[in-house]
Design a protein around this nucleic acid. Structure first.
Lengths: 270, 270
DNA sequence: TTAATCGTTTGGCTATATCAAACGGATAGA
DNA sequence: TCTATCCGTTTGATATAGCCAAACGATTAA
């Protein structure tokens, strides 16, 4: 019996690969799972789930811990690899560490993928709040519209890209200060461009302020941004308005220089 | 036309999943690749390679950078997740940082998977050599027979497991000091057990010494080990023989206590 | 002892991954 | 400017390989 001709979408995709990705994702959200649990979660047959897991195990992407199937440490290695390949990380790592030390607060290195912010590197300075804030949950990408680092990136993306991103992810309200209006956001991004840095005044998390500055390569592409975050009680007045922005911005400039000097020899078209 | 009945091996595996894993691995070793390059590398048709990449891209596991397909930052997130879920990391992280600070050298947290050592966490102390030793290549797992951390783990695994590991990976010679004889290694492991810690005297890399101590949970399972590594010129005499081992061992004991206290409530059978 | 629930294995049907070949765009050489 | 290669992409046809259901053996609970 032939099914109707319009097979799903025009670009032919491999169902088995899609399912593999779903299983990896499910093993994250479920924090490991047994065969039956996974099968009911994904609405596939028990035997299918079993065969997938068996194959992933053979490929060392999944390990069996008792009766639980879990993602293996292979993902840790792959993650390190991906991070180390990232140019912004390679040339920004040291500067982030310096920022954390000189400010005593959290210093971060962010980049953008699929319209969301991904933390490439995070260093907690000596005064940083909750030095041990650990999530055993998956670290979800952050929205760009409500963080200093995100606005620093958005400000230097082409207008049409920003529109697309906002269409896709919206501007969800995180706190009372979150910018939820598109025009207001674009006005803010103009300010960011004029200043060269972005503020986040409790727009993502109450009580948390941050300052972010973009890193731009010599082809005018934003690679990401540096930021420093700390409690509102400590980041205030001149410190928050002038001194910190200057520090962050100058760190971002150093990264830009390092990056452009290094890329000079190997003319990668990127 | 029916093929012969013994389809590959007894446990049925999904070829498409195997290929997906191969592609992920290939994108690592090739540092990103085009369609044709990947196809010839894996000896599959160009169109197949294309469909795999298109699907992996749709699933956000791969990104297209110009004409290059590369692993996405999704792997970084997954890696962080896997790391944070690891008990040894959660309860050992702080101790590794303390070790790095108090010794000034490199401090590491290792665990074992498939008979190889995987670095869970690495902190460079203030005196540590080549603070910026960065690999943009994939960090391969380490052999266990030629590292302090590896021998500390092997010493507390059941004899049969150790035999299996050695069968699988051998005892490849890395330097003049590498133990390449199985009996000699088992004698060394006896010593390690007696002492409670392991030495690495330039057995993996020339000029590099290290001391490692195991972390064992209250079910007698080795979860991994802590270690401190530094140049032979600095790690010598009493320091290398007594003081450093004591420091590392006591740090490992602290981790064990943290771990056992925390696991007390939720009776995970592991 | 029985019933329920798990992971695992297998047969058979159909969906689907596969390859070859062709297309269109870009680049380089003549 | 035209031609020849090299890409990445699309598509048709075919056989492979993934899918479910059902049954099995092992554990655990009732």
């Amino acid at each position: 019996m032939t099914v109707d001709p319009n097979q799903s979408e025009s670009p032919r995709t491999l169902k088995t690969v899609e399912r593999t990705a779903q299983i990896i994702e499910a093993l994250e959200t479920l924090d490991g799972a047994g065969v039956t649990e996974l099968a009911t979660h994904l609405r596939i047959s028990k035997s299918s789930a079993y065969h997938y897991l068996a194959t992933l195990r053979q490929e060392d992407l999944v390990v069996k811990n008792g009766e639980q199937y879990e993602l293996s440490l292979q993902f840790l290695l792959a993650g390190e690899y991906v991070r180390n390949r990232n140019r912004l990380y390679r040339y920004g790592k040291d500067e982030v560490e310096d920022l954390a030390e000189s400010t005593g607060e959290y210093a971060n290195l962010f980049t953008e993928e699929h319209g969301m912010g991904i933390n490439l590197y995070k260093v907690s300075g000596s005064d940083a709040v909750g030095s041990g804030y650990q999530t055993d949950k998956l670290q979800r990408p952050d929205y760009l519209h409500c963080t200093a680092t995100g606005k620093a990136i958005l400000a230097y993306l082409p207008r049409e890209r920003v529109d697309k991103i906002l269409d896709q992810h919206g501007l969800p309200k995180q706190t009372a200060n979150t910018i939820t209006d598109r025009d207001e956001l674009f006005a803010e991004l103009d300010t960011v461009r004029q200043q060269g840095y972005a503020h986040n005044d409790e727009e993502e998390v109450e009580g948390l302020r941050a300052v972010g500055a973009p890193v731009i390569d010599r082809n005018e592409n934003v690679l990401g941004s540096l930021s420093v975050a700390g409690p509102t009680s400590r980041l205030k007045g001149e410190q928050f308005k002038d001194q910190l922005p200057e520090k962050v911005q100058s760190a971002a400039n150093v990264v830009e220089v390092n990056l452009n000097m290094a890329t000079h020899e190997n003319e990668s078209l990127e």
